[in-house]
Amino acid sequence: MIVPETTTKLSAFAQDVQNGLSSQPKFLQSKYFYDAEGDRLFQKIMDLPEYYLTRCEAEILQTHAVDLAALLRNQPFDLVELGAGDGLKTRVLLAHFQEKQLQYRYFPVDISRNILDHLEETLQQRWPDLSVFPLEGDYFSALKKMPASEANVRKVVLFLGSTIGNMTMADAESFLQQLRAQLAPGDLILVGFDLKKNPELILAAYNDSAKVTRDFNLNLLHRINRELGGNFQPENFQHWPLYQPITGHTKSYLISKIDQEVYIEALNLTVKFAAWEAIDMELSKKYDFAEIEHLATLAGLKVLTYFKDRKEYFTDALFMV
């Protein structure tokens, strides 16, 4: 039995679930997809034939690691990766940086302690001399945990994987402004943007034939059951992704197939669903270059260059503070 928490003692996860499922329309925050099972499912998603994003960014990093290393070789730096995950793509950069004997420390940031432990162990086995400092938590709270850098050490922040696409334009602007406020002039930010392209390619990436993305969304209902004592029956929900080519918004919903009530013990909350009522689960915005330039201007950043894959499906934009 899960003992109901008081409002003041609710975890951030519990508070956000309570807020989202008490709202109209209902929503859940996609950052909570990533528990241990969510991590496992996302690894499967990245291997799917429809999910081009990971392959495109991996190509970019493999192709342009030498260019990025050339930009960084003249002074030591702290490499900070927001939402590091398993670090698979970043290891391409790390391998090149190690080969070139660049002077740096690596600070992977993630909300999942499980994935950070796995990443640290993997990196220490491969590069025992690499200084790795995992930081668990939300991006900005984790950044505040960083040890102070020496005056001649600049920060290089990685925000890869099109994570910025999970934000609205207004939220992306606010995020980059907050990030810039924690950095110093001359610091760099490398941000991954999924680009607008054939809508069929985009939608297929979020509606794969193996239904792994469906399971990834439904796992958040399972997580509420596991951690908060919910009694969701995920089979009563339908995964429904959509792409809007004008805004570039890819949206994922879970739609209740029936009239139903769900009780969440830790919140002492009963949530009523009408048949075909939706939970807004995720936004994944696709950009064009004009939008990226506009976003950088609003955030007070300078675009130094765009690293692109050969098909120009994806770009890693390098900003300077």
Rank of each mutant, 00 (worst) to 15 (best):
P134G: 04
P134T: 01
L135K: 09
L135W: 01
E136D: 00
E136Y: 02
G137P: 04
G137H: 10
D138Y: 11
D138A: 08
D138H: 10
Y139T: 02
Y139H: 02
Y139L: 06
F140C: 00
F140E: 00
S141D: 13
S141H: 13
S141W: 12
S141F: 13
A142E: 04
L143K: 04
K144G: 12
K144P: 02
K145E: 12
K145I: 02
K145F: 04
K145D: 12
K145S: 10
M146C: 07
M146W: 07
P147L: 11
A148F: 07
S149R: 08
E150I: 03
A151K: 11
A151Y: 09
N152P: 02
N152M: 03
N152T: 06
N152Y: 04
V153G: 08
V153K: 05
V153L: 04
R154N: 10
K155R: 13
V156W: 00
V156Q: 01
V156G: 00
L158Q: 08
L158H: 13
L158A: 06
L158T: 07
L158D: 05
L158I: 12
G161W: 02
G161H: 11
T163M: 11
T163Q: 07
I164S: 10
I164K: 04
I164R: 01
G165S: 05
G165C: 08
N166Q: 14
N166H: 10
M167Q: 12
M167N: 14
M167F: 15
M169T: 08
A170W: 00
D171G: 05
A172I: 07
E173S: 10
E173C: 14
E173W: 06
S174E: 14
S174V: 12
F175W: 06
F175N: 03
L176Y: 01
L176N: 01
Q177Y: 07
Q177G: 14
Q178I: 13
Q178K: 15
Q178H: 15
R180M: 08
A181V: 05
L183T: 01
L183M: 12
L183G: 00
